[in-house]
Nucleic acid binder design. Sequence first.
DNA 1: TTCACGTTTCAACTACTCATGAACTATTGA
DNA 2: TCAATAGTTCATGAGTAGTTGAAACGTGAA
Lengths: 115, 115
Amino acid sequence: MKQCRALNALSALANEHRLEAVRLMVPRGHDGLTAGEIGAALELSASRLSFHLNALEAAGLIESERKGRNICYRVSYGALRDLMGYLLTDCCGAHPEICSSLMACDGKPPGARRG
Amino acid sequence: MKQCRALNALSALANEHRLEAVRLMVPRGHDGLTAGEIGAALELSASRLSFHLNALEAAGLIESERKGRNICYRVSYGALRDLMGYLLTDCCGAHPEICSSLMACDGKPPGARRG
DNA sequence: TTCACGTTTCAACTACTCATGAACTATTGA
DNA sequence: TCAATAGTTCATGAGTAGTTGAAACGTGAA
């Protein structure tokens, strides 16, 4: 991942509504959510919602697909993975203890793990 | 991690110089780098460097310690871990394949892994 | 105490991001 | 074709973030 792409992704995530939108989409997988569902959950006006979803899509963090009247949005997991990899450059080499605690996958939500 | 803290961290990282500074510090572990070393690597004026390091410290992403004339900065790995956990809320529950590819730790830099 | 070095603080300026509401496009069903 | 629904685009103005250079501060050495 190039710095430019990482910066775009971080800038896109550095907004309360966009961060919440992504967190809303993450557990929904490929099915995603319609713009309307996201707007309702975030209590955003249509134009604000569209603005923020566009920003996330432009940053490559989400993808969209029209389904009839609705447009369905889902997280681009590859982009999320690349972003984290970029942030952690070389931490595995010098400090494996950081990566291993960071990267343990036990089937529980990462937010529920500490230490 | 609360949304507010995650937002502060993401905003802090959403800047070319601050992102590079963090990536510079990540592999240095607890030893960190002095402000002068970071400034030289990033080719920043003293005042700009100070501004950016302050922003990172205020966001909780780095810690500082005076060592004689120098001030030593290092990454707060806990903050980085919490931030990623916050982003990935519940992805393990619904989509373990995402987490496992994201979170595999094999001693190689995450940036060198694909797929 | 004085000097030099490394770093921080401040004020002024510029550029960007976000919210708003009206107008617009795309799709569906009568 | 027309109306309803779902979502997007645009212009505007307010607020915030980043850059700059000068001055000030804290520390160690002479």
